[in-house]
Nucleic acid binder design. Structure first.
Lengths: 251, 251
DNA sequence: GCCGCTGTTGCGTTCTCTGCAACGACGAGT
DNA sequence: ACTCGTCGTTGCAGAGAACGCAACAGCGGC
């Protein structure tokens, strides 16, 4: 709809890969470098980009500022923090907090593993809907029609031998997750990693986010992973309480 | 330079405050709501904003994605992580990592305090040049002419009774910081908080970033703060080594 | 010192973007 | 139940902004 803005945003995306020169940017966007120069100037004036040296542009500090100011506004993140940190301290493994926003599942917080073997992820990254434990937890909270709608919109890209690859199988899995109160990712996303996730609930019992623990298989086998479930559920419960959840209220 | 882009960025800034409607945005930017609508559509297509409900827009997930992808690319942050985490575990206080970028000092990482009394800050926030320990460390690394240039450009807003309020005093402080190898913020920014900071150096001995420990005065008095310095310096040294610093090389 | 590369500027044209006004959807109030 | 008001949305036409071109400048390398 807005050409210049559209181009500018595309350029930002290109810059996320690393510092770029005017010409590189111009080529990747398919526009004249003069155009890029002017867009960059505007972006620079808002601190969305900054110049590394005379020729290289990189993403600027306004982005961090905006992103974190917005994250800061999310009550779940702040409220859940102590519980998640505790789980991270206790297990030493990577702990994630993810939420469902606008059709996608996004990691909104992360506590790094203390081990040397770690999974790669980062805040802001999108999680695949069909092969991550957090996504299963979040989607499982929806009512049947919505679940079906989502299940049918997924592109079931197989990531490992265990990846769920069909809508019926996914719906069955969601039902199981809703039933037992936590979700597993049994190396469905990456061969070397498996996860467990549980819901964090708010005042009205609705699912606000999902907590997960991700562990490399070399550190903990499947039984070991399952053994983490009680701690995970305790954490999720604690986080839910911090978010105003009332355990007595049954709905 | 680019009107539409400029407006769009201004709107993003307004959205950082919280979800807004079209009309609110239109008014705050002083443009017609039609214009806002079109910009929002473009921003939405790039996932820079998303619709909360029918009428409210909020910042979208692309921002977190970009911001963190970019942060991820910063070697200092990744390399310094284990050392900072250790310091955080050891002391239990808030640990910050900040760097100087494009004329300003920005927090690029943060490890939360374990105590209930905490300072408010966040990744992406800009630190005042004249009254924070991290800024002093970073600016103290520059050569004399640049220091002076910066010192004279600062607006010395007094934050507390201890805030440095003149360029000569600031320059003297920088000299002291460079001399002793760490910087103090003796409640110069906020009455209830004091900090110590030290430089993290890279291969050529240049200062890449500053580590700081921030402590509420109710938890630790001035002498207690000073007692943290050896741990801080040890951490900074460890982080520097991880960044390729060579202690034998003297320059 | 010359050549090539890259960022920068002035300018004229074109097409994008803007604001207006009218429409439609939704809720509140009577 | 009806109307009014509010807010998002669309079509349109004029205006001005953004675009690309071509020429210039600054820098480093062969």
């Amino acid at each position: 709809m807005s050409q210049s803005l559209d181009r500018a945003l595309t350029l930002l995306d290109a810059l996320a890969e690393g510092p770029r020169t005017l010409d590189q940017l111009a080529e990747s966007a398919g526009v004249h470098k003069t155009t890029v120069l002017r867009l960059m100037r505007t972006l620079e004036s808002h601190r969305f980009v900054q110049r590394d040296d005379a020729r290289h542009y990189r993403l600027g500090t306004a982005l961090f500022d905006l992103a974190n100011r917005s994250l800061d506004g999310r009550d779940v993140r702040r409220s859940a923090e102590p519980a998640l940190r505790e789980l991270n301290d206790l297990t030493g493994h990577t702990v994630h907090l993810a939420s469902y926003e606008g059709g996608e599942v996004v990691y909104i917080d992360k506590y790094e593993s203390r081990h040397h073997v770690r999974m790669y992820s980062r805040i802001g990254k999108r999680a695949a809907l069909h092969c991550t434990a957090v996504a299963k937890v979040l989607v499982a909270d929806f009512a049947e029609p919505r679940r079906r709608e989502i299940a049918e919109s997924i592109d079931y890209v197989p990531m490992t031998a265990n990846t769920i690859t069909s809508a019926p199988a996914y719906l069955a899995e969601l039902a199981a997750v809703a039933e037992r109160g936590y979700a597993l990712d049994n190396s469905e996303h990456e061969d070397f990693i498996h996860c467990v996730a549980a819901p964090v609930r708010g005042q009205r019992g609705e699912v606000l986010a999902a907590v997960s623990v991700s562990v490399p298989k070399v550190l903990l086998d499947y039984d070991g992973l399952i053994a983490l479930v009680p701690d995970l559920l305790r954490t999720a419960r604690k986080a839910s309480l911090a978010c105003g959840w009332n355990p007595d209220r049954e709905d």
